[in-house]
């Protein structure tokens, strides 16, 4: 081992070299001052996107409301844009019907899966089931739509003969399956955040795992679970392809799940298809529907964030 003392006679003086490069480094440092500016502009870009969405939706919706009165839009119960009747209620009931069916499927299954994964499953089982469940979330919605139309609907028809080919029930169930992973994984996160000491306290008093899950974990993780469900509702409201393919294009003002309906999103697809001319009332109506959809989902997202933020303060 060479002694550190020999370093004194430096054949290469590093600090000297650093000094030589100093002018160049100074220039870099000046250029570096611009970096945060550029990065800030990138970050501002996402804000501009939001503003862009608001601006385009509002601008075209204003065009719509200058032709169709606001009152007719929100209170008329008939949506027949091609014959001049613009009451958005059937689209809203259609959307709500789909969302209701979807949540009826996803809420019990998603929360049950979350409880199973967080309270019962050992880490090996979890390692297999969790990613597989995530695959469900990665399947393109057009595939779900295809499956709803060609597989789920024919099966349901066997039990409900009066079921229409395009119907809310089949689409709603499949939307529900699609959002299971969302409910399950967000709820499981909330349950995992519950301190183990609470579980141990209950188990030490002789509680069964089921009692711990229901009486300790679920109440403690409650707001997290609720937030996950609210987010899932938002996803269901905004889901487009499944309902476009499997629920049909008939804006019926009904809550009958066996009937064909039309959702807000499905109308947007229909209203922007090739035969709509730019600047027509139908073109503008798409944006009025779009802003309705946007407000619904934004409200749900903000609500979920609000609930989740309160939840974080609990521990």
């Amino acid at each position: 081992m060479e002694s550190a003392g020999s370093l004194k006679k430096k054949p290469l003086d590093v600090q000297e070299k650093i000094r030589e490069n100093k002018e160049k480094q100074k220039m870099f440092r000046k250029l570096e001052k611009l970096v945060p500016v550029f990065l800030f502009l990138s970050a501002a870009f996402s804000v501009m996107t939001t503003l862009g969405i608001l601006f385009t939706l509002l601008k075209e919706a204003v065009g719509f409301f200058s032709v169709v009165p606001v009152k007719e839009f929100f209170f008329n119960t008939s949506w027949k844009p091609w014959s001049g009747s613009f009451g958005v209620l059937p689209l809203i009931t259609g959307t709500l019907l789909i969302t209701f069916i979807a949540i009826s499927v996803a809420l019990p299954l998603g929360i049950a899966a979350a409880i199973f994964l967080s309270e019962y499953a050992n880490s090996r089982v979890r390692k297999v089931i969790k990613p597989t469940l995530e695959v469900l979330a990665g399947i393109p919605t057009v595939v779900y739509g295809f499956f709803a139309l060609t597989f789920v609907t024919p099966i349901l028809e066997k039990f409900i003969p009066e079921l229409q080919i395009f119907n809310a029930l089949s689409a709603g169930i499949v939307v529900g399956i699609m959002i299971i992973p969302m409910v399950a994984s967000l709820s499981e996160d909330a349950m995992n955040a519950v301190p183990n000491s609470l579980r141990e306290g209950a188990l030490a008093m002789g509680s069964t795992k089921f009692e711990v899950a229901m009486k300790v974990v679920l109440p403690a993780a409650f707001s997290g679970v609720v937030a996950s469900v609210v987010l899932a509702i938002s996803r269901a409201i905004g889901e487009t392809m499944i309902v476009t393919i499997a629920a049909g294009q008939s804006p019926n003002f009904t809550f009958d799940p066996t009937m064909s309906i039309q959702t807000l999103t499905a109308f947007i697809v229909q209203g922007t298809s090739g035969d709509t001319t730019y600047g027509s009332t139908i073109y503008y109506s798409v944006y009025a529907v779009g802003i309705t959809l946007f407000v619904f989902t934004l409200a749900m997202n903000l609500l979920a964030q609000y609930i989740a933020r309160r939840f974080r303060e609990e521990y």
Partner: peptide, 19 residues
């Protein structure tokens, strides 16, 4: 900016289509 990004992630894809 941060909460804007979070909200943007929750905007339905079809609304991006309209934009």
């Amino acid at each position: 900016i941060q909460s804007n990004i979070q909200n943007l992630a929750g905007v339905p894809s079809i609304v991006f289509g309209l934009l």
